[in-house]
Amino acid sequence: MASWSLTQRGLSRGLRLSASMHASYGRRMTSSLPEHLRKALAYSAMYPDLLPEPDLTRRNYVREMLERQDMLSRRRAIDIPEFYVGSYMSITVSDQNAPGKKNTFVGICIYRRNHGLRHQMALRNIVENEGIEMLYDLYSPIILEIKVLRLQKRLDDDLRYLRDALPEYSTVPWDMEPEPHREQGSVPVDETRVIMKPRPWTQRWERKELKGVKEWGLEDRFFKRAVEVSKPWEKYDLMKEYRCMVPLEDQYVVWKEVEEHRKTIEEEHKRSRRRKLLDA
């Protein structure tokens, strides 16, 4: 009984752990977990869109099943590769106004949000000294191609602070070639820590518990106030964690379908990707 509660707790914490904690604490934790729990942890990071939203008042089995069916159908029509916040990506969409009716944007993924078919991701890049961000619906049929140029994670799950960091940290070369990444094994973590621009910022980043910032350029009073305003008890709030999580029994239903999808459709997409790289 004790071991089950530990692994349950470990899994629930692991599912909310950021990539950096995976690197240090998480790896130790995950190696002691049984395989199905380890897979659940990995899949919830790889496919955050396939999990339903945890709000109990909005959950419905039939709707979730049909939404998942639609998402996997779309993943059959187009290769949606594995990517994380911090990966360098290139997305091509159909655009009525563009010269060849196609428009490509290259950038670093700074956040992912929403569940199911509403899942969105944002890319950021500095183009001709101007910072530009583009938001995409992952399941929109307007998207023609999603290419991951460099598969990596960063120290944080949300890189919106790059807006207030020096521009070199948001720059991705426009003509970057896709780098080969190891299909098996863990995802590399880019431990870059950024230097912030002088204030004013878009948000009070010093209050957000960020790990990816090296130099803040702030006086001590900001950090003192951040400590006063912080809520350190929240990480011990079990009910809050429970409310943000989908129960394991419901997750297994999802991951079972995902396993099937990985064996069939994703293998096909991987093969065609490799073929394209060899031909090029």
Partner: peptide, 10 residues
Amino acid sequence: FDAPSIEFEQ
């Protein structure tokens, strides 16, 4: 959802 992506005519 299982149809190919939308492409606009040139």
